[in-house]
Design a protein around this nucleic acid. Structure first.
Lengths: 213, 213
DNA sequence: TAGATTGTTAATCGATTAACAATC
DNA sequence: TAGATTGTTAATCGATTAACAATC
């Protein structure tokens, strides 16, 4: 059995992937850990350590081939596995996230959107027709998506998640204010945009105070 | 000089605040670190260590008074300082974030929204009239907001940020795909919702593989 | 008072950085 | 070959957990 990769490393992987994609798109073919560290504001040592959790992707004296490394990280992240996802909640947040997010280049294909409000059922979001929430059970049983994005009011979060787990959903991206507890065998990413505001508030306060004295 | 509080602690503060708010709203008056640790899936030791970076808010044999602790954390986060913010970009993301976010309970008051597209200038978002981007300089000089939320296309991010820094903006919450580099004296929170998708993809892949063997 | 639970120190654990031999 | 830069080990640093005396 391979040794488990630490959460800190995994959290950094998407950022590496983004930077390599940018480098690739701007036509840069090779990069050293030193140059990448300069661009990303991290140490070169950390980059080499992180990558070597998964294998030796570089070459002494040369650095890393951008295209190769980008592809390897995509594989590590599982971005080419064609995972499918459904979204529950076709309100503002659901619409915006479904429309603005490049799902396919982040590992998922969004195959269904559901809402319980008859007023939005039938409308079109980014090429997907919103279905009635009552149909989600049959849809999941038939199409077997592994992930669900929850953009529902906070009161509904827990019960919706439990229902979907019953249908076989194994992972959630939860946008609602209500935190989804960790559950055995279920993968959860809670997104809290308000937390970023509070962190900004803290950092501004902190600076204000150091400036005052 | 007080010793600097570590980034790990600061990152956890908003989550403590959310949980205390929930406890308060459900009428719970006191809580022990042990009970809170159970609810939050962290260790009681960590909770006590974290809080004691800022002071002793509890009482031996009793625990913590929920209302008092909530208020103290709000003060630590600087949520009552009435910071003001402007938003640049009145597209989908801007609209949704402006509409769905309880700014005032996260430390900020949103006082202006700006866009360069004449088609959206003049429209109303959550009670705020969208102004022409060309007017933002005068607005900032007059109203002195300290923070700007960027929901602009990635090509525009860097130049907009530089312009706003010129007008005196000191902190950014950046939603665009393009990462804003750390700059001397400027506070930056980059939000990357796509990263959460990639982390989910990684975790699903990881589980798939362990299941296969 | 006795029981509970904090605040805080000490021990452990893990993550980051530094250093350098291997090697392209 | 000489120079550059990786992969990897060792050293450092910091964060988390455990333990317990203080005390409400």
């Amino acid at each position: 059995m391979e040794k488990k990769v630490s959460g800190s490393v995994i959290n950094r992987l998407p950022r590496y992937y983004r930077h390599l994609t940018d480098l690739y798109d701007s036509g840069i073919e090779r990069i050293s850990s030193k140059e990448l560290s300069r661009r990303m504001d991290v140490t070169a040592s950390q980059i080499r350590q992180d990558l070597n959790c998964f294998g030796g992707f570089g070459q002494q004296g040369y650095g890393y081939n951008v295209e190769f490394l980008k592809t390897e990280i995509a594989n590590i992240l599982g971005l080419n596995r064609g995972y499918t996802a459904v979204m529950v909640g076709a309100g503002n947040m659901g619409r915006t996230f479904a429309t603005n997010t490049k799902f396919e280049s982040r590992g998922f294909k969004l195959i269904g959107i559901f809402d319980s409000d008859p007023a939005v059922v039938g409308s079109d979001i980014h090429g997907i027709k919103v279905s009635a929430y009552s149909e989600i059970g049959d849809f999941i049983k038939e199409n077997k998506p592994c992930m669900a994005i929850l953009t529902v009011p906070k009161e509904a979060t827990k019960s919706v998640a439990e229902e979907l787990i019953g249908y076989g959903i194994k992972a959630f991206m939860n946008f609602s204010y209500s935190e989804l507890r960790q559950m055995e065998g279920i993968i959860v990413e809670n997104v809290h945009l308000g937390d970023s505001l509070m962190r900004l508030s803290y950092k501004i306060s902190e600076k204000d105070e150091s400036g005052e004295r």
